[in-house]
């Protein structure tokens, strides 16, 4: 067995795969930029109750449409100015971040659970079950998200919860499609056969053998879907179908500001920039994770 020991020492010298992955993550400029930006946005939004200078709902009609500090007429009591009702814009942007993050995260969780369950089941069992799931996915793809949201809001009236549920129950299609094909690739590998031959239950095989090996693809889809949910919420709120006033949602703030855009452009520019930065950060993280976690899936 001396050869085996030799082989072993050679192998032990090669690095731990987790260490390799960590180093790849740290060396990825896009991923690090995105992660830093995302962390900054998350921290600022979560800390809104502590750092926001004003109550985001407090109106001060005497100070309507105050300009931000970079304008000659700006002052430090409202660093980003005020909106048409005299509410402090910085406070509203900070609190609005919470809404965007909450929506992105909850929609990602709900749609991720639905979509990856369907995808794993379809990919693992194949056959008729696969046909049924594929049909459900096709049926779902035939429903335009905005039109469904319109109908639901007409019936149930818009609120944060309705937006989360509508998006969460509609946006699972990409999870299902990606998880299905990733699972199909894994289920024919011998380690799945070995686990079956060891007597492992189907649930155990799917959760312990298949899922960890399709997790990189899952993470990548999750980031893309979170960013897309945040944008959709903004679009729905802009159309008046999403979050209702006076909640400080970035999409709603843009919508409320459109009447003033020629005289007070910052009312649109500030939440618009915040939205763009958040989506950019999430997409950079998603792209970076795809490069580092699932390099063979790169298009």
């Amino acid at each position: 067995m001396s050869d085996a020991t030799l082989e072993a020492s050679a192998a032990a010298a090669s690095p731990d795969p987790r260490g390799v992955a960590l180093r790849r993550v740290a060396g990825h400029a896009g991923l690090m930029t995105g992660a830093t930006l995302l962390a900054a946005i998350v921290i600022l939004s979560l800390a809104a109750p502590l750092i926001a200078p004003h109550d985001p709902y407090a109106q001060d009609l005497a100070k309507r449409l105050a300009p931000p500090i970079w304008d000659a007429r700006g002052d430090w009591s409202h660093p980003l100015g005020t909106d048409n009702l005299g509410r402090d814009y910085l406070s509203r942007v900070l609190w609005g971040g919470q809404i965007s993050l909450l929506i992105g995260f909850s929609v990602m969780i709900i749609s991720g659970l639905i979509g990856s369950t369907l995808g794993l089941v379809a990919g693992y069992f194949g056959g008729r079950i696969d046909l049924v799931v594929t049909f459900i996915v096709t049926a779902r793809l035939a429903l335009p998200v905005v039109l469904v949201a319109l109908a639901v809001v007409a019936v149930a009236s818009g609120s944060l919860l309705v937006v989360i549920l509508v998006l969460g129950l509609l946006k699972w299609d990409r999870f299902a499609v990606v998880m299905r094909s990733a699972t199909q690739q894994v289920r024919h590998l011998d380690y799945v056969a070995a686990a079956r031959a060891a007597g492992a239950s189907t649930a155990r095989i799917i959760l312990r053998e298949v899922l960890p090996n399709v997790a990189p693809q899952l993470i990548v889809v999750a980031t893309v879907e979170a960013a897309s949910a945040i944008l959709l919420e903004a679009a729905l709120s802009f159309l008046g179908l999403g979050v209702q006033p006076p909640l400080p949602s970035w999409g709603l703030m843009i919508s409320e500001a459109k009447a003033y855009m020629f005289f007070s452009f910052w009312l649109i520019a500030i939440p618009g920039t915040a939205l763009a930065l958040l989506v950019l950060a999430i997409n950079l993280v998603g792209d970076g994770l795809r490069d580092t976690l699932a390099p063979d899936g790169r298009a």
Binding site: Y191, A197, N213
Partner: peptide
């Protein structure tokens, strides 16, 4: 499973 166990051909795909 208690009575019969496999060793597969390709050790690159038989270990998770």
């Amino acid at each position: 499973a208690r009575r019969v166990q496999p060793v597969f051909q390709d050790p690159y795909s038989s270990l998770n």
